[in-house]
Design a protein around this nucleic acid. Structure first.
Lengths: 362, 362
DNA sequence: TTGAAAGCGCTAACAC
DNA sequence: GTGTTAGCGCTTTCAA
């Protein structure tokens, strides 16, 4: 691999001139610049990003850690973020924490050692991930996305779970359903917790009690399927199931069918995320669309503004963006007159983000 | 951030001793080693992977470039590879080429500039990706996985598409289907091409002609759905659709339902990959399971063995691993007696990989 | 505007 | 077994 010195020799100038000509960091005689460019091309010179990073302390790379890339929600977020980062000439270094807090910590450390300029993380566990996230946030700009840990550790960007779940519950109630049950992952992660809380709050607004304890497992298809079995087996009648995400809801659809229950006639089902498969399930899934693009945009904005907010006045912030309701056939049609006024007026557009608000963590 | 010199000062030894003690590269007096360890801990020392990489030319990082992370096949492969790489203490730097050859080339260059020790790529296009892949393979060990470019450029690891499609076609034929049609992505990528070829070959083995030209679009849900429309609208009767992957097949199920066709009674459907949603669709999808674990294993083996094979005698190799048939309800039950002998005897176990064979490229 | 020289943090000869 | 020295490839003072 040719180095900058090889180019310098070939062009008959000094290494510094090559550096300046190639990076444009300072003015260089146009004629020399041309000679340098030609020499670089003829030698097939490519700059060494490692040497540059060592010297400048900037790697033009940001790291991302997701709980599980096989959960289709995260690929959507990753793609949005990569598109956005591309515009900034920044590379994304993506890691999977494999649902394991120890792995998550290892990944974070590896990213820091590689001198990434910033980190975007969706932490596994509100409690267990906190020490590592906090420690890393002291060393490098860090944004939490979707999920977050407890305590005021860093900026956070995510969907407004309260609004999303609220709209879903309102829709079910407007459709005549009164016996609602919540199925999600264990509330050790903040998404699950926020949505569970939002579910209770939404029911309370309608003066309803849940039709049974929340069923809490994991964010995957199998849990949704198994939870359907549990619901069918329990004596408690249920006419609506609010699921913590689409993957669970899709498993739920299958499980209910296997249990001989029809959707939406006997039991309505809702999801969260709006992954591609939500549109083609049978029946198609009513859900709430995560604002991936807006989330990615916001992450980059906060990251470039440099930092996790701990030093700015007011400390870390949370940005929550309203998700968009997608009504499909897994929920009953709304009774006439019932939906005259939207439950969250003016919040059902993806473009609208709620104003930046202090994050109320935990 | 403390450096090795800070630790050296704290421990009262030289920087080299710290380096040796921490890395274990050479023997160090146990007492000093202990002092170093203590000093490092008290200062919160973390080694600088960038400096190390510059010095040693090894980054303990391998890069991966996938066509589209939102295609659920790739997350499965990524997770398998990360698990495997973790055992080697190697970090995975994952990039998405966003279905764009220009982006793909940029990603490859960025990886090389970052001094990755190797690259795993699933190239977008047999032709258009070839120049970039070839150029990169000259600079760094590179393995192609799943898809590959034309020409003998590097080692390749993938599923045995011929065997997989063959088993699927045999199953349909054994189930009494004779009017089979192929729906996939455009054959500009090698997976699509191999599977299309395998489909024709399998039909020929049975003395059958396809029930219409292959329908070629993109590897996504919407194309499957749209292709179903096309099939329904065309006069040509079809009693079995072999899809290029699961995502298309899942869209196909939906599209056929919308067109009023029943699966499998009127039309049988098969997929390829065995993503999680294949098991819970309605009806559950008959498909072929990609041997992700074995593919990851093989990639790492070839990568560690260092190189893209261009210099070894015999040149680049291709390793194709037999996928595993997963029979579900989207295909008709097999007629009695018809499946007495398996069409590809002894190949229906994931563990068995076909022997390394010369890759027959293009 | 250009070149010489120093140094980012680390490891690997080379001496002792 | 340990310290000294040099240098990975680059950028950035500092002089000229």
């Amino acid at each position: 691999m040719p180095t900058i010195h090889d180019v310098a020799r070939e062009a008959g100038v000094s290494a510094s001139t090559v550096s300046r000509a190639l990076s444009g960091s300072r003015p260089v005689n146009p004629e020399l610049a041309e000679r340098v460019a030609r020499a670089a091309r003829s030698l097939g010179y490519r700059h060494n990003a490692v040497a540059r990073a060592l010297r400048t302390n900037r790697s033009h790379t940001i790291g991302m850690v997701v709980p599980q890339i096989s959960n289709p929600f995260f690929p959507m977020l990753v793609e949005a973020l990569e598109r956005r980062l591309q515009q900034e000439g920044v590379e994304l270094l993506l890691c999977d924490s494999a649902q394991d807090v120890a792995v998550e910590e290892r990944r974070l450390r590896a990213l820091v050692e590689r001198q990434v300029d910033g980190i975007v993380i969706s932490p596994l566990d509100t409690e267990a991930s906190a020490p590592a996230v906090r420690a890393i946030a002291e060393r490098v700009p860090l944004i939490q996305v979707d999920r977050r840990v407890g305590g005021a550790v860093s900026d956070w960007v995510g969907a407004d779970d309260t609004a999303g779940i609220g709209e879903l519950v309102d829709l079910l109630v407007a459709g005549g359903r009164r016996r609602l049950r919540f199925v999600s992952s264990a509330v050790t992660n903040s998404s699950a917790l926020d949505r569970a809380t939002a579910f209770d709050a939404a029911l309370a607004r309608h003066g309803l009690a849940p039709a049974g304890d929340p069923l809490l497992g994991t964010f995957d298809v199998n849990w949704g399927r198994r939870a359907a079995e549990l619901i069918a087996a329990s004596g408690t009648p249920v006419d609506g199931v609010v699921c913590g995400n689409d993957v669970i809801a899709l498993g739920m659809l299958r499980g209910l069918r296997e249990a001989g229950l029809t959707v939406p006639d006997q039991v309505a089902v809702t999801g969260f995320d709006d992954i591609a498969f939500a549109e083609i399930s049978d029946p198609p899934l009513t859900t709430v669309r995560q604002p991936w693009e807006a989330m990615a945009e916001e992450c980059v904005r906060l990251l470039l503004r440099g930092g996790n907010g701990t030093e700015r006045d007011g400390g870390p912030r949370g940005v929550s963006i309203a998700p968009e309701l997608r009504i499909r056939e897994s929920t009953p049609p709304v009774l006439p007159g019932q939906r005259s006024q939207p439950p969250f007026p003016g919040r059902d557009r993806e473009e609208q983000s709620s104003p930046v608000r202090d994050k109320e963590q935990r």
